[in-house]
Simulated scan of single mutants.
Amino acid sequence: MTAFTLRSNDLAEGQPKEKRFSFNSFGHDGDNVSPQLEWANAPEGTKSFAVTCFDPDAPTGCGFWHWQVINIPASTTSLEQGASGKLAAGLEMRNDYGFNGYGGACPPEGHGMHRYQFTVWALPVEKLEVPDDASCALVSFMLNMTSLGKSTITATYTR
């Protein structure tokens, strides 16, 4: 069986990501561009995908959700660089910055290296049943409870 994989032209496992993928507020001047992602070999029975970006190192006690896109059709196998806010299909949920879409890296200055886990989730449903204003925690719970499989690239960022 071939593994479900995620790859990116913009991110490399364990490597720092470029400033253009970082946030452009809270005293930081990145470009807030979502990275290019593509996936292959989804598990049998996949009816949709979700894409998330999570920082487990944020000083919150519960991490920080930078991006959650759900209800991506099973026929989609990639997101172009800068796709956030321009998706033809899929629903961008409210991130922990408080808006719908991609919010780039913005660790506190001097806080050290943070990990950014970009994950594609294969789901057995065409539509994840969550309210349009669902919290990041609820979306994450539903992804973990229904996923057929997932693949992750962990990039880093330091300020």
Score class of each variant (00 low, 15 high):
Leu128Pro: 11
Pro35Ala: 14
Asp132Phe: 01
Met113Arg: 15
Ser22Cys: 07
Glu13Lys: 09
Asp132Glu: 02
Phe99Glu: 08
Thr2Ala: 09
Lys127Met: 02
Cys62Val: 12
Pro16Arg: 08
Ser140Trp: 01
Asp29Thr: 15
Pro43Glu: 03
Phe118Ile: 06
Gly82Gln: 10
Arg115Ser: 15
Asp10Val: 00
Ser78Ile: 09
Ser8Glu: 01
Ser25Ile: 02
Ile72Lys: 09
Arg159Tyr: 01
Ala42Gly: 11
Ser75Asp: 14
Asp133Ile: 02
Glu129Gly: 06
Met142Glu: 09
Ile72Gly: 07
Gln68Trp: 05
Val51Asn: 05
Thr5Glu: 03
Ile72Phe: 03
Leu148Phe: 06
Asp55His: 08
Arg7Asp: 04
Leu11Asp: 11
Phe118Gln: 11
His114Thr: 10
Lys19Thr: 11
Thr156Asp: 02
Glu109Asn: 05
Thr46Arg: 04
Asn32Leu: 08
Thr146Glu: 02
Leu143Val: 11
Phe118Asn: 14
Ala58Tyr: 11
Ala12Ser: 13
Pro124Tyr: 02
Gln15Ala: 07
Thr119Asn: 10
Ser151Asn: 09
Ser151Ala: 05
Trp65His: 12
Trp121Gly: 00
Ala40Phe: 06
Ala89Tyr: 04
Asp31Ser: 15
Val139Asp: 01
Phe4Leu: 03
Phe23Cys: 11
Glu80Arg: 14
Thr5Arg: 02
Ile72Met: 09
Phe4Gly: 02
Lys19Pro: 00
Gly98Glu: 03
Cys62Asp: 15
Leu143His: 12
Ala3Ser: 06
His28Gln: 15
Glu18Gln: 12
Leu87Ala: 15
Asn9Tyr: 01
Ser25Glu: 08
Ala58Lys: 13
Ser34Met: 08
Thr156Tyr: 01
Ala122Phe: 12
Tyr97Pro: 06
Leu37His: 13
Pro124Ala: 05
Gly61Lys: 08
Tyr116Met: 14
Ala89Val: 15
Phe141Tyr: 10
Arg7Phe: 01
Thr2Asp: 04
Pro124Cys: 07
Pro59Cys: 07
Arg94Pro: 10
Leu148Val: 05
Pro108Gly: 05
Trp121Phe: 03
Ser22His: 10
Thr46Tyr: 03
Ala42Cys: 09
Leu148Thr: 03
Ser151Ile: 04
His114Gln: 06
Gln36Ala: 11
Gln81Tyr: 14
Gly14Trp: 07
Lys150Glu: 05
Met142His: 09
